[in-house]
Amino acid sequence: MNKLHAMNTFVQICESGSLTKAAEALDTSLPTVVRTLASLEEHLNTRLFNRTTRKITLTEEGHLYLSRCRRILFDIEDAELELNSQQSKPSGKLTITAPVNFGNQQVSPLVNQFLKQHDQIKIDLLLGDKNINLVEESIDVAIRIGPLADSSMVAKNVGHVRRVICASPRFLNNYPYVKTPKDLLKLPCIRFSPLSHGGNWNFYQGDKVLSIKVDGPLYCTEISAMRQAVLDDIGVGIFLSYQVQAQLDAGTLVPILTDYEPEPLPVSVVYSHAKLMSSRVRVFVDWMTLNLKEQMDKTKQR
């Protein structure tokens, strides 16, 4: 068994979410992926996935092995990059963009770590919630939340964020009957432009999409104002999970309608393949992809 090949196959299964999609990404057959995974588990004498007819999920041992495999594969790729680039250290300036809240919470601390390890690189970190054109604005790398619409971009997935509907415990004491999305028609809802579709909130019941027209006393264009309104018992709000994680952990906000949550949104490290990738961009993309993915995996397991 080729261990590196098996590790790479295992990581691709994790990132693709299924054996079939992993086979497509690796440009190989499904039986080959199945055999490689079986050989790896037999070699390790450990089950890496729990399998059902509908999905596969990592075991606890699988989570530990995934982190090690990613690190090993990253170190190998990094070593090859250093040899091929014929330069000891990448240098120059990078321009990076990310959403405001996610950038402050997740991206900025990692950028600081990166700069400590690469003292010949300078970074302009632009935090903003508008998706700007990377090529036109001379942006090297973007951290994006949501599906990628521009086919000229390359996206490396690092995880997903939930869309959470929540309210304060005091508010819910007055509205104990909230059981289905249709119950929101009777409630005041705080609307926030990026997460509403023409004033509608979308929910899922199996394969069926339920679109609910919400209304309420407040419309916000800034997430902190919306969060405070929900904390102040003004109404129900819909958030990306990281935007209210502290409040959910503290119990000052409570999730509702979790069985009907919209599909999670992908988080990606994005760059343009229209431009020749410099060594500093390559090093940053690989480093950020690995470390942001590990950071989000830890957050997901809390």
Rank of each mutant, 00 (worst) to 15 (best):
F74K: 01
S224I: 14
K3H: 15
I143Q: 07
Y260D: 03
Q106A: 10
K298G: 11
T95F: 11
H118T: 07
Q205M: 10
K300L: 06
G251A: 09
D75M: 12
N173I: 14
Q295C: 05
R54E: 12
F10E: 08
V33E: 02
G198R: 02
V269C: 06
A6S: 10
Q106C: 08
G206R: 00
N131V: 13
I132K: 08
T289A: 05
S168H: 05
G17N: 11
L292V: 03
D119A: 15
V236G: 04
K55H: 13
T221K: 14
A79T: 12
T20I: 15
H273E: 09
H160W: 13
A274R: 11
E136V: 00
E41K: 01
K298N: 12
V33W: 03
L115H: 08
M153C: 10
G146I: 05
F239D: 01
N112Q: 15
M153I: 04
L110I: 04
K3A: 13
C166H: 01
L125S: 07
I190F: 02
V230S: 00
F284C: 01
L195A: 06
D124P: 10
D75V: 06
K21I: 02
Y219R: 10
I212N: 07
Y175T: 08
I72R: 09
A38R: 14
V283A: 06
K156Q: 15
F114M: 04
Q228E: 06
Q86I: 13
C220G: 04
A23D: 04
L134T: 04
A98W: 00
V161Q: 12
L48K: 00
V236T: 00
K186H: 14
V236H: 01
R282M: 13
V269L: 07
E137W: 12
S138M: 01
L276M: 12
C14D: 01
D286W: 01
L257Y: 02
Q117I: 11
T46N: 12
S268C: 15
K300D: 15
K130D: 12
Y219M: 11
Y65G: 08
I56W: 03
L292F: 09
T57R: 11
V100A: 10
L81G: 09
Y177S: 14
S16V: 07
S196P: 03
A38V: 00
D249F: 12
I132N: 04
G199W: 10
S85G: 15
L231T: 06
T46V: 10
L265M: 14
D75E: 14
Y204C: 10
D286V: 00
M288W: 03
S108W: 07
N112G: 08
L185D: 07
V135C: 00
D207R: 11
V236F: 06
L187A: 10
A6M: 12
L48R: 06
Q295Y: 06
R54C: 01
S268R: 05
Q205T: 06
E82H: 11
H63S: 06
I238P: 05
Q228G: 01
S29A: 01
M226S: 01
A246F: 09
T221M: 13
D183P: 07
I139M: 02
